[in-house]
């Protein structure tokens, strides 16, 4: 790891001031992507601004028809939250299957969303549930926020403060995990809110998380696993690597989508 100066502000506002002053500074959240990257010398920020002491970035609250999660809330806290479990059980389930128990004690929703790893779990939940990413400057829909492979709409010095998830009438998440990294080889989040149905796929797309319109249309007719019978996702634009080629991943999208719908409708085996 290359040397850096370390800063620990106690509020998002202080953090923003520091980020504006320090050239080439990076934000440290849970550190479970940034620190390994720095250890490999693939990143060498001159300064780290640790958000760990920003109390205003932590916590989970139910606000009307939304669950609002502070950016520095850990995966374990989301998974164990009574509010999240009651309001959007699929979201608690997703958080409880990120990495392993020890990673979940440190990793944060803000860090995961800002990194936009193409195999991360949260982006699928944000896109399917129609979440809003709130920063210290503005509010962005999930579509506006996730712009490509490890790319987001975040500007220099912009800090995610919270993520707001509207409640869904039905939601489910299924993922086929890479057994070593525990990242999603394919993960599918389905959500039904009023008449709107969204199917979001992570782990598979060359450009990161994406929606599957054909599955959404099929589920609109009837929100049941059977509605996806015979529906195949194309292998075009799907990732291939040593773990799975594009055809296999494309097949998994259909399988995981069905499992997610089964879970959402309480029919999971």
């Amino acid at each position: 790891m290359y040397a850096f100066t370390y800063h620990k502000p106690t509020s998002a506002r202080q953090a923003a001031t520091l980020l504006a002053k320090k050239e080439d500074a990076k934000i440290l959240a849970g550190g479970h992507t940034l620190l390994p990257t720095m250890k490999q010398r693939l990143a060498s920020p001159s300064a780290l601004v640790d958000l760990g002491a920003c109390a205003d970035l932590k916590g989970i609250a139910r606000k009307g028809r939304n669950i609002v999660i502070g950016a520095m809330t850990t995966h374990a806290e989301v998974a164990d939250s009574a509010e999240v479990r009651e309001a959007i059980p699929a979201l608690a389930l997703l958080a409880g299957h990120i990495g392993d128990p020890h990673v979940r004690h440190r990793g944060t929703i803000g860090g995961s969303v800002a990194n936009n790893d193409p195999a991360a779990d949260y982006p699928a939940a944000l896109l399917a549930l129609g979440a809003t990413v709130v920063t210290n400057k503005r509010k962005l829909t999930a579509e506006e926020f996730f712009t490509g492979l490890y790319e987001t709409a975040l500007e220099e010095g912009e800090i995610i403060t919270k993520v707001s998830f509207p409640l869904a009438s039905k939601a489910g998440y299924a993922k086929f995990r890479n057994p070593a990294s525990r990242y999603a080889m394919v993960g599918v989040f389905v959500a039904k809110r009023g008449s709107e149905i969204r199917v979001a796929v992570t782990g598979a797309g060359e450009g990161g998380v994406f929606r599957w319109p054909e599955a959404e249309a099929a589920l609109k007719a009837r929100f049941a696993p059977k509605s996806l019978d015979g529906l195949k996702h194309t292998a075009k634009g799907i990732n291939g690597d040593i773990h799975a080629d594009p055809e296999y991943r494309a097949h998994l999208i259909g399988v995981m989508a069905k499992q997610a719908v089964a879970q959402a409708t309480g029919k999971a085996g």
Binding site: Y6, L28, K39, D50, A76, D100, P101, H102, R106
Partner: peptide, 27 residues
């Protein structure tokens, strides 16, 4: 492993198990 996969470095931080190879002491 030194890459937060293997768990040989686990310690309890305020009562919760974390990977000490992926945590800055100063943090």
């Amino acid at each position: 492993c030194d890459t937060s996969q293997c768990g040989a470095c686990l310690v309890h931080l305020d009562g919760k198990a974390v990977k000490s190879c992926t945590t800055l002491a100063v943090a």
